[in-house]
Simulated scan of single mutants.
Amino acid sequence: MIRVLLADDEAMIRAGVAAILAADAGIEVVAEAADGREAVAQALATRPDVVLLDIRMPVLDGLAAGAEIRRVLPDAGVIILTTFGEDAYIERALGFGASGFLLKAGDPRELLSGIHAVADGAAFLSPKVASRVIARLSGGALTRGAAARDRIAALTAREREVLTLLATGLSNADIGSRMFVVEGTVKAHVSTILTRLGARNRVQAAITAYEAGLVGGEAE
Rank of each mutant, 00 (worst) to 15 (best):
119 A>S: 09
80 I>F: 03
11 A>P: 11
58 P>M: 04
166 L>T: 15
36 G>Y: 02
92 R>V: 03
89 Y>I: 03
218 E>V: 09
85 G>S: 12
23 A>G: 15
207 I>M: 11
149 R>M: 11
42 Q>G: 03
151 R>G: 07
16 G>E: 13
102 L>A: 05
178 R>G: 01
60 L>Q: 02
121 G>V: 05
57 M>Q: 02
218 E>C: 00
163 L>E: 15
78 V>K: 03
206 A>S: 14
138 S>A: 14
114 G>Y: 06
1 M>F: 13
200 R>A: 12
185 T>L: 12
180 F>R: 13
83 T>W: 09
192 T>S: 15
117 A>W: 01
23 A>L: 14
194 L>M: 10
166 L>C: 14
182 V>G: 09
210 Y>V: 13
81 L>A: 06
137 L>S: 07
13 I>M: 13
51 V>Y: 01
181 V>M: 11
79 I>H: 01
114 G>V: 06
220 E>N: 08
205 A>D: 04
8 D>A: 12
10 E>I: 13
75 D>V: 05
43 A>N: 02
25 A>E: 13
199 A>P: 08
75 D>C: 07
220 E>V: 10
103 L>Q: 04
71 R>A: 14
33 A>H: 00
20 I>G: 08
99 S>F: 02
175 I>A: 10
81 L>W: 04
213 G>N: 03
118 V>D: 01
127 P>H: 12
102 L>I: 10
50 V>I: 07
214 L>N: 00
18 A>D: 12
106 G>C: 10
175 I>W: 04
147 A>G: 08
71 R>W: 06
31 A>K: 00
25 A>H: 15
75 D>T: 07
135 A>F: 12
208 T>E: 07
27 I>P: 02
173 A>R: 15
28 E>H: 03
92 R>L: 04
166 L>M: 14
71 R>V: 03
88 A>R: 11
76 A>T: 01
80 I>L: 06
200 R>P: 11
10 E>H: 15
188 A>F: 10
199 A>F: 05
194 L>K: 10
15 A>G: 12
167 A>L: 12
157 A>D: 15
77 G>W: 00
35 D>Q: 10
130 A>E: 13
133 V>S: 11
200 R>L: 12
121 G>R: 01
150 D>I: 13
67 A>L: 06
176 G>I: 05
108 P>S: 04
188 A>K: 08
186 V>N: 05
43 A>G: 15
59 V>P: 03
29 V>P: 10
168 T>E: 13
115 I>V: 12
20 I>P: 03
121 G>S: 07
25 A>W: 07
95 G>C: 13
78 V>N: 05
69 I>D: 00
87 D>V: 14
123 A>E: 08
171 S>P: 13
179 M>A: 03
78 V>M: 04
44 L>M: 08
70 R>C: 00
54 D>R: 04
214 L>R: 01
7 A>K: 08
202 R>Q: 11
155 L>F: 11
165 L>C: 08
65 A>D: 06
39 A>T: 01
72 V>R: 09
114 G>N: 09
182 V>C: 09
97 G>S: 12
41 A>I: 06
23 A>Q: 15
159 E>C: 10
116 H>E: 15
14 R>N: 11
217 G>Y: 10
212 A>C: 06
76 A>E: 00
63 L>E: 00
24 D>K: 08
138 S>M: 15
198 G>L: 10
182 V>H: 14
85 G>V: 02
34 A>K: 11
108 P>F: 02
77 G>E: 05
115 I>M: 02
8 D>G: 08
40 V>S: 05
213 G>H: 00
